[in-house]
Design a protein around this nucleic acid. Structure first.
Lengths: 116, 116
DNA sequence: TGACCTGGTCACCTTTGGTTACCGAGGGAG
DNA sequence: CTCCCTCGGTAACCAAAGGTGACCAGGTCA
């Protein structure tokens, strides 16, 4: 039922809201490109993200079943993240959106310039 | 240059942030489905949106060159919005993302349930 | 002893999203 | 003539999300 998409209660809508989150798509991209990564490495590859926002983002990914968390029981503990199959399947439409953005960003920046 | 995507200044990133905005994708969908719509009709088709958020969203769409605004000089004035070609091209990857969400929402809701 | 490392969390502040009230000019009901 | 309705939008205000810096545990290395 596509019509439900318009209901505020529609879970698809809440899902899209979460995917649209600032760091979500970036984390998915990085994980899709690199496979399994540790928290700190992940952070290094996502310039501008704070520890808190990265951990919140990762918690959301894990809660949604898009990523898996694995703790190595060393001291200090090392925490690894990787995409699940579901997460990898999300990367496909997400990549399409990124490609669209890269292809059209020039035109849009131009449009913004005109409107200011 | 894809590498730039990781720079906080990367315009593609700011573009994706804006596309990810709560009402943006919904407005694009509605406009893509219906063609030209007036402000109030648009609002009726987007349950939950407030006047302010709709007008902000539309201003952004217009500023980015994704939608066009046409004012009919009656009293009260009627304002029509429609997607530009650019906006219609965005609908393609956006629809793909929606389809992914609809296809996988059940699995994700389930995952959320497990983690609570 | 004490500085360091990792993956967080906590308290706090700032920016955004969202709600409600209101406007302005003409038309129609009374 | 008066009063309220229409329509698209703005202004003032409040709640929620995003973001920052400090701090923690607890074993290791000097």
């Amino acid at each position: 039922m596509t019509g439900d998409l318009f209901s505020p209660q529609c879970p698809t809508r809440t899902l899209l809201d979460r995917i649209g989150t600032k760091w979500m798509s970036m984390a998915v991209k990085v994980l899709a490109e690199t496979g399994e990564l540790r928290f700190t490495d992940l952070r290094r590859r996502m310039p501008g993200v704070s520890q808190k926002m990265l951990s919140v983002t990762l918690q959301n990914l894990v809660a949604d079943g898009l990523a898996a968390r694995r703790v190595e029981d060393t001291v200090p503990p090392r925490v690894h993240y990787r995409l699940t199959e579901l997460g990898e399947s999300l990367e496909v439409p997400l990549a399409a959106l990124r490609e669209w953005a890269e292809a059209n960003v020039a035109e849009i920046v131009q449009a913004r310039g005109r409107s200011t």
